[in-house]
Computed example of a mutant assay.
Amino acid sequence: MHLNLLAVDIPALDTVDQKTQAFLVSLNALIPWIVTNGVNLLAAILILLIGLWLSGKVSRIVTAVLGRTPQFDAMLRGFFASLARYAVLTLTVLAVLAQFGIQTASLVAVIGAAGLAIGLALQGTLSSLAAGVMLLIFRPFKIGDKVQVGGATGTVRDLSLFWTELISDDQIQIIIPNNSVWGQALRNMSVHPTPAHAGELRFRIPETSDLDGMAEAVRHIVAADPRIQPNPTILFDRTGDTRALDVVVGFSTADDIVPAVKSDLIRAIHATALPTEPPAT
């Protein structure tokens, strides 16, 4: 009876030994794969960490370098800094994928084809982006300049990467895509402002008038008109009539509105500053 049990257990032990040997063989084959992929995983993590650090470093370097150039404003510095950062991150991702044996050449081709399709779909937007970069670099105008682009005229309030914002004289907002601003003639009326338009006003006062008081009263009236540029002149002149003097008011305006301003000054001065002549006896 005992011998029969031993005879039955020996095949079972052989089966266990075979399974153990098969497991050990599989484990021996798996260990190199685990080691290799573990090393690749560690290398990929290291490359990713270095790429993240390097992308931030490159972004800061680009910002600092462009900050020394006056024509690069904050928006343009941020744009190029982000561009450099994402370029480094793209190379980092490709290097990480290459660590796992993924063929990056085909992936780059797919990304390029997708980029081309997106570029064709967003052709107008990318054109405005490129024009915005050129406007920010060469600065044909700045914030606060009065410009004319096509049929639109206004003061520049904002310049972004995609559009230019103008405010017209009647306070209407005008948004123009940058490709329209860059692609046509632009008139900047603030670079070479037109010369001031000079005007002169004469009126007669009695010789016995208070000249200092008259000059102060006329100067106050002239200075109160916002259309007149600062520093008007108040002079006195004598004509052939020995009993009268001429008050000569010299002024200038930014726009060609001298006749209208002169008429308003005559009304204001005659209403408040001129002495009242005594009634004839």
Rank of each mutant, 00 (worst) to 15 (best):
S209T: 13
I176R: 12
T164I: 03
R227K: 12
M214R: 00
L201E: 04
M189L: 14
T208Y: 01
P177M: 01
L161V: 11
D210I: 13
A185H: 14
E207A: 13
D212F: 00
V222F: 12
A215L: 02
L201G: 07
P226D: 10
T208L: 12
L211D: 02
A223Y: 05
G183K: 09
A223H: 01
E200S: 14
A198G: 04
N178P: 11
T194Q: 08
T208H: 07
N179I: 05
P226S: 15
I174C: 03
F162K: 11
N179T: 07
R202I: 08
L186C: 09
F162I: 15
Q184A: 15
D225E: 11
P193C: 05
P195W: 05
A224M: 06
R187Q: 11
L201N: 02
N178Y: 08
P195K: 01
M189H: 13
L161H: 15
A224E: 07
R227L: 03
G199F: 08
E207R: 14
D210R: 01
V191W: 01
P193N: 02
P232Q: 10
S160G: 15
G183M: 01
S168K: 12
V191F: 02
V222T: 01
G183D: 04
S180K: 14
D210Y: 03
R219N: 13
H220S: 15
L186F: 06
I221A: 07
P230M: 15
E165K: 15
E207M: 14
R204N: 01
L161G: 09
G213W: 11
W163Q: 07
Q229W: 00
D212Y: 01
S209M: 07
A198T: 06
T208E: 07
W182S: 04
P206N: 08
F162H: 13
A224Q: 09
E207G: 14
M189Q: 12
E165W: 12
L186D: 06
S190M: 04
D169N: 14
N188H: 12
N231I: 09
P230L: 02
Q184W: 09
F162W: 08
N188G: 03
R227V: 00
R204F: 03
V218F: 04
T233M: 05
S168P: 10
P230S: 12
T194H: 05
L166N: 10
L211P: 00
V181S: 08
A223C: 06
P226H: 15
Q229T: 00
L161D: 13
S190H: 08
P206R: 10
T233L: 13
T194L: 09
E216R: 13
N178S: 06
E165V: 14
G213L: 13
D212V: 06
N231C: 10
M189F: 10
P193A: 11
I176L: 15
A223P: 02
V218A: 07
Q171D: 12
V218G: 12
V191Y: 05
W182H: 04
V181I: 08
R202A: 04
M214Y: 03
D170F: 05
P177W: 12
P226Y: 11
Q184Y: 04
N231G: 04
V181F: 08
P232D: 08
I221F: 02
L186A: 00
V222G: 00
L166R: 15
Q173K: 15
S209R: 10
